[in-house]
Amino acid sequence: MKEITAKEVQQAMEQGSKLNLIDVREVNEVETGHIPGVIHIPLGLLEFRLHELNKNEPYIMVCRSGGRSGRATQILESNGFIVSNMAGGMLAWEGAVKI
């Protein structure tokens, strides 16, 4: 599984890179704070919403600590997507947070 650090994601965003971040946490978790511009798809709904994603674009999966996003990364990889897991999740995130 390909991984990217929270710091690498933050630096890419600060440099103006267009990233496709998918937050797989539950609604109440996302409401407490999320990375600006993130796409919210709870892990339990991910397989039902694959049709909304583009296999030609890379995605970065995010959760609280990296576990659920790791599972989400495996789901997307097994369905032919280009995907990375943000290691450490929101616990490792030091960038801007939107509430």
Rank of each mutant, 00 (worst) to 15 (best):
M1P: 05
M1N: 02
M1F: 07
K2M: 11
K2W: 09
E3Q: 15
T5S: 09
A6M: 07
V9A: 02
A12Q: 05
M13P: 02
Q15V: 01
G16D: 05
G16E: 06
S17T: 04
K18Q: 13
K18C: 00
K18V: 11
L19P: 03
L19I: 06
N20C: 09
L21R: 04
L21Q: 02
D23W: 03
V24E: 01
R25V: 01
E26N: 00
E26V: 00
E26M: 00
E26Q: 00
N28H: 04
N28F: 08
E29A: 02
E29Y: 03
V30D: 01
T32C: 01
T32I: 01
T32A: 03
G33I: 03
H34C: 12
P36R: 11
G37D: 10
G37P: 13
G37T: 12
V38Y: 03
V38I: 12
I39R: 14
I41G: 01
I41R: 06
L43W: 07
F48L: 09
R49P: 05
L50D: 09
E52Y: 12
L53S: 01
L53T: 01
E57H: 10
E57N: 13
E57C: 06
E57R: 15
P58T: 11
P58R: 14
I60C: 06
I60S: 07
M61N: 07
R64G: 11
R64Y: 12
R64W: 10
S65G: 14
S65R: 13
G66Q: 10
G67H: 13
R68H: 11
R68E: 04
R68C: 05
S69C: 09
G70E: 06
R71M: 11
R71T: 10
R71N: 07
T73R: 14
T73F: 05
Q74D: 14
I75S: 07
L76N: 12
L76M: 15
S78T: 04
G80S: 08
G80E: 07
I82G: 00
V83L: 15
V83G: 12
N85M: 11
M86I: 14
M86T: 11
G89F: 05
L91C: 05
L91I: 09
A92V: 05
G95Y: 07
A96L: 10
V97Q: 10
I99E: 12
I99M: 12
